[in-house]
Design a protein around this nucleic acid. Sequence first.
DNA 1: TTGTAGACTACTGTCGACG
DNA 2: CCGTCGACAGTAGTCTACA
Lengths: 69, 69
Amino acid sequence: MMDIKVAYGEKVKAIRKSQNVSQEKLAELAELDRTYISDIENGKRNVSIETVFKIAKALDKPMVSFFEF
Amino acid sequence: MMDIKVAYGEKVKAIRKSQNVSQEKLAELAELDRTYISDIENGKRNVSIETVFKIAKALDKPMVSFFEF
DNA sequence: TTGTAGACTACTGTCGACG
DNA sequence: CCGTCGACAGTAGTCTACA
């Protein structure tokens, strides 16, 4: 059974790292809390689509990029 | 400024209708409440990715289908 | 730089009822 | 068949602090 939270978190981490951005910087760009970004990347949080949208914008990627498995 | 809740709700409604499925039936398939499906389709709720995942499975569509604008 | 913990508020998602 | 209301429990997202 695939865990969407884990899959999404891995995508965020991979894309963020590919751009050499820190969690702190991503949090600032997305207007979210740094500790929340940490939890998300570790598959611990069930994020809302508004949050997915904010993170996608912050990383300059279309939303679909985060759901291509 | 684009509202992701509204855009997502419209997608759900369009895909559901294209399959001739009622909100009640979709709710049953996705294991969600019917009144919540109604709110979602009307752009009133900021749904979580687990909910998006459930609805996608219920309508037999990949998650990305709901975020192609 | 990141993970985690705890405490907090606002909101998600449920449910019964009515038009 | 669908929209909305109101009450409710659980959780999203914030924030400070420590390793």
